[in-house]
Design a protein around this nucleic acid. Structure first.
Lengths: 226, 226
DNA sequence: GTCATTACTAACTAGTTAGTCAATAATCTC
DNA sequence: GAGATTATTGACTAACTAGTTAGTAATGAC
């Protein structure tokens, strides 16, 4: 019986909110079911918007998937603040870099799954993105800087490729997380348990630092620091 | 005009060959397209058998996928001969174990992809398998044996969990291979190049061995070998 | 040789799925 | 406030897809 005088339902049109609701629902759907397993109808239903709006804003299922992919990658990079680490003592900086990379993976399971999904699809969608690639430069530069400084100070071994190091740091964390469902089953352990994750984190840091701080064996050949 | 007297077409029925043809085509289809992306019709077409034979022999798409999964895992274990390594000097044995694990991954890209696919599906199919799980025991035992012997001899650090070590050895190789499509693009390198793979192999061996042969830092606390 | 079993085939189906059409209504432009 | 633009809707469709049906023919058991 109360007449709402001013704004009866100002919520009739809201493009930004609709776009956001679609993207949120799409993220859950793609991450949970993969690109082929995801259903556009389910995204429409879960987001509460009309299915055709998805096509209105994103054009196609593939484009929507790419939008999700780009958002997850940029969210990640926004959170990573590895530039801070560049001025720390090399050993300390590298320890922190390894831990924080590990933590970022742990905190962003969606990213892990999307990376796996992308690789199953031969990275064909990632390659269409113009925004993602530049994001990687920063982390790699930080690794390179810390590495050089550590080598100059004589605390890190010579002849380490920054890309190899990056792949090892990532791989040690990634495999444990990306394959936790098969591994937990095959090894009879709950790898998702908090205790396990913390133990793993320490193991990873120790492995990377052991490698870096040990003198490289045999090949003491022309490897001098400037 | 020549009458074929003896056997006009003895090839009319051949259950084993049909089964094998289905399985071969299914492997390619599932590995290339994932579980959701794979098409039963395409498997029928590629194998050259009638579609209904697939259901006759395997029951459903999911069961066929499981059959492919089980075969790839058992093929792998049949090739791995890590028992040989158990009697080698620990450092030498571990070096060989890391290299051969790396090589197996490189030589069996199908396995890598199926493991990723399985994890996208939360390992729900793997968990239905009764044959795969036991296969893992052997490799883990070999790691455990070499580790203990190395620790007893004082060449390996104490406080190393065999499962953590297994995950690191696998992870260092796996990530590089499973994510090569995204990584090659993001890092501007062809990670599939032979040269790269060999370099990566050496890097992985060195990292694992550095870790094992370095005395564990700080935590010299109740960690004595028996 | 007969009968049951197994291999194999072609055509069909019921349910799904990405994407479209045609229309209405709110908002912006001027 | 007229007219273009944009947000939003519900019904529709053409193509696809896992699985089925109903049958034929080769093989094995006895």
């Amino acid at each position: 019986m109360e007449l709402s005088v001013a704004a009866p339902s100002k919520i009739t049109r809201n493009p930004e909110a609709s776009r956001a609701k679609i993207l949120d629902a799409a993220r859950i759907e793609f991450v949970s079911n993969g690109l082929n397993g995801a259903r556009v109808d389910r995204i429409a239903e879960q987001s509460g918007v009309n299915k055709n709006l998805i096509y209105h804003y994103f054009g196609s299922k593939d484009e929507l998937y790419l939008a999700v992919l780009e958002r997850i990658y940029s969210d990640l990079r926004a959170k990573q603040q590895d530039e801070d680490l560049r001025d720390l003592p090399p050993v300390e900086g590298m320890k922190r870099l390894v831990s924080s990379t590990f933590d970022h993976f742990v905190d962003t399971p969606d990213l892990i799954r999307l990376m796996s999904i992308e690789n199953i699809h031969y990275a064909q969608n990632l390659k269409r993105s113009s925004t993602i690639k530049p994001l990687y430069r920063g982390l790699l530069d930080t690794i390179q800087i810390l590495l050089k400084r550590g080598q100059a100070e004589g605390v890190f071994r010579a002849n380490v490729d920054a890309v190899d190091l990056y792949m090892s740091i990532s791989g040690l964390a990634y495999f444990f997380l990306s394959n936790q469902h098969t591994l937990s089953w095959l090894l009879d352990r709950d790898l998702a348990a908090r205790r396990r994750v913390l133990k793993r984190r320490q193991h990873v840091v120790e492995m990377v630092l052991s490698y870096l701080t040990q003198n490289s064996p045999a090949e003491a050949d022309g490897a001098d620091t400037e």
